[in-house]
Design a protein around this nucleic acid. Structure first.
Length: 427
RNA sequence: GGAGAGAUGGCUGAGUGGUCGAAAGCGGCACCCUGCUAAGGUGUUACACGGGUUACCGUGUCGAGGGUUCGAAUCCCUCUCUCUCCGCCA
């Protein structure tokens, strides 16, 4: 969440930065609009309450003293009975004002960094660089390729669970597993990440810590009868590993990689990517997560993005890097690079990884802090990025590795993970 | 799911109605002494919020939320979590 001190110190600057996400973010109905007034009211009530509490504490102490000395305190007791009533009322008022302020605070997104380009949606994103040779020949879509090879079964997925679910078979299933293994090995052995394995179900507090809640509950799968959710990304459990903790500065940066399944309701994306396995309710992902000092967030983002790129390069998949414009940034992000892989059947680049810096936004929400040189605990900066989305990676491999005879070549780097298999062909 | 025990500061662990934000120990920090590694002495050492914004003052926080009381770490209720035993189970 945004820094409340900053909110009071420089509300105009903050407003201007938020407005770049879209006018509605600071519009009349926005959480932002409610904040100023709620903050003033909250502080006013609190001041009154504290004055009264101070009196109560002072007189109560005097009563204790008198009683011990055997003196009469009837008068004070009568007066304090009234004060106690008023304290109770004020407490209730102050509490509800504080809660309203706190709720509004949780609904304000992260102000984009000044360096983030202007723009309203993905068409305004800025391409930074390209890697690899793209093939321009006619290539079937991955779902056709996969069905023809008997490794993707969309009908079975639909029968078992519904639309946006896929069953992967045989060499395809092994490929899914190989990709997970390959990526985790690369990040742990070459890039120095500590692997963790985490729950795929988390509670409300954890979901709030990284910013999925309270605003985006409709995008999440919620467990019936429990205040718990399926994770939409490993970012949630891995970042929150350190919630409400004060970290030793010497430990930073902490860098984790994790494989998890991810679950998304994809509400509001009806009609988009309905064919194939590009947009699924359940998919696998290897995620990279950093906790670092605020001043190292941006250099860290470059490094982390490079680690995700290294996976695509090792697999020989052509891609480009774009920087998201202010209007396309996710709720918690202050700056984001997307990696987009070339899909020959669509003749366009599609997102396969998203690498973001959150600044201290998540650290503040989740209470993840470190002790700086002055001995003061302050929120850490967090970063994360997909390294990579497994399902979309499998899609890209099928299309980019497709041969005219219908088979699909396995990149050399992956062959050891496929038992030496060099191509997937029809039996 | 059933029975029992517990939850206190960075950690260990005292504290059953009023000078308790909380003993003691460990750890951390500062200084002194000493002057090979080491050991010893003294002091200091939670966080948040609000007001002055420098040395200060106030409020809240002893798992969470409610209640009793002039006053709660201490008494009552609810919830959460941890541990032990039983049941079930990959």
């Amino acid at each position: 969440m945004i820094d409340r001190h900053e909110l009071r110190r420089a509300p105009e600057e903050m407003r201007a930065a938020l407005a770049r996400r879209g006018a509605e973010v600071v519009g009349p109905d926005s959480a932002w609009a409610r904040l100023q007034e709620l903050d003033a009211r909250q502080r006013q009530l609190k001041r009154e309450l504290e004055t009264l509490q101070a009196e109560r504490n002072r007189v109560s102490k005097a009563i204790g003293l008198k009683k011990r000395q055997g003196e009469d305190a009837t008068e004070e007791l009568a007066r304090m009975r009234e004060v106690a009533q008023r304290v109770k009322q004020l407490e209730a008022a102050a509490k509800s004002a504080e809660e309203a302020f706190g709720l509004a605070l949780l609904e304000v997104p992260n102000p984009p960094l000044d360096s983030v380009p202007d723009g309203v949606d993905e068409t305004d994103n800025v391409e930074l660089r390209r890697w690899g040779e793209v093939r321009q020949d006619e290539v079937p879509s991955h779902d056709e390729i996969g069905e023809a090879l008997g490794i993707l079964d969309f009908e079975a997925g639909a029968r078992l669970a519904g639309s946006r679910f896929t069953v992967i078979c045989g060499a395809g299933a092994r490929l899914e597993r190989a990709l997970i293994q390959f990526m985790l090995d690369m990040h742990t052995e070459r890039h120095g990440y500590d692997e963790v394995w985490v729950p795929a179900i988390v509670n409300r507090k954890t979901m709030t810590g990284t910013g999925q809640l309270p605003k985006f509950e409709h995008d999440l799968y919620k467990l019936e009868g429990e205040d718990a959710f399926l994770i939409p990304t490993a970012e949630v459990p891995v970042t929150n590993l350190y919630q409400e903790r004060i970290l030793d500065a010497a430990r930073l940066p902490i860098r984790h990689c994790a494989y998890t399944p991810c679950f998304r309701r994809e509400a509001g994306s009806a009609g988009r990517d309905v064919r194939g396995m590009i947009r699924q309710h359940q998919f696998d992902k290897v995620e990279l997560v950093w906790l670092t000092r605020p001043e190292h967030a941006l250099s860290g983002l470059e490094t982390l993005t490079g680690h995700a790129e290294a996976v695509l390069q090792a697999l020989g998949l052509p891609y480009r890097v774009v920087e998201l414009c202010a209007g396309d940034l996710g709720f918690s992000a202050q700056k984001t690079y997307d990696l987009e892989v070339w899909l020959p059947s669509q003749r366009r680049y599609r997102e396969i990884s998203s690498c973001s810096s959150f600044g201290q936004f998540q650290g503040r929400r989740a209470g993840i802090r470190y002790r700086n040189e002055a001995g003061k605990a302050e929120p850490v900066a967090t970063l994360n990025g997909s390294g990579l989305a497994i399902g979309r990676c499998l899609v890209a491999l099928l299309e980019n590795g497709w041969q005219a005879d219908g088979s699909v070549l396995i990149p050399e780097a992956l062959q050891p993970y496929m038992g030496g298999l060099q191509r997937i062909a029809n039996a």
